[in-house]
Amino acid sequence: MTDTAVAQPVPLPAAMQEIADDFADLAAPQRLELLLEFSEGLPELPARYAGSLDTMEQVHECQSPIFLVVEVADEPADQPDDRAVHLFFSAPPEAPTTRGFAGILSEGLDGLTVAEVLAVPEDAPYRFSLGEAVSPLRLRGMVGMLSRIKRQVALKTRS
């Protein structure tokens, strides 16, 4: 076994890799513009969660009040790993960076299977070329979101 084999990074899911490539192709200021597009494209919270943030999980790693909840499909009943995962976020408009992080995770992960979501590497947030434009400190918020998403998926399928 060689060192290079050990160092191979865990790949991102295809949709997420596509987003990462889009960011990588841009210069730093344009990366912020794309992040703003993700912020504005974050899907609205469905009515069943509106006004009931207590049924969602707050992401304490974020510098703004953001809440998320994960839903896992019931089917196929005998193959929990193949069930589809759906993500829902609540983040205020005055926190566009946090909304942008949520938008990336939503577009990159929503609809994937349980097994695919659980396989997303922990360092995925650092693969969007945002460290320079946003600062590594601020990226910790996305790390917190991702780990809470994976934890919720595991709790809902591994009991």
Binding site: L32, E33, A95, P96, T97
Partner: peptide, 22 residues
């Protein structure tokens, strides 16, 4: 701002962004 994108969502006319981190 704390939020690096907030200026880009709309700002006081004539103002410019000064980011504490960048």
């Amino acid at each position: 701002d704390e939020d690096v994108l907030l200026y880009d969502t709309g700002h006081i006319p004539g103002s410019l962004k000064l980011d504490w981190h960048q």
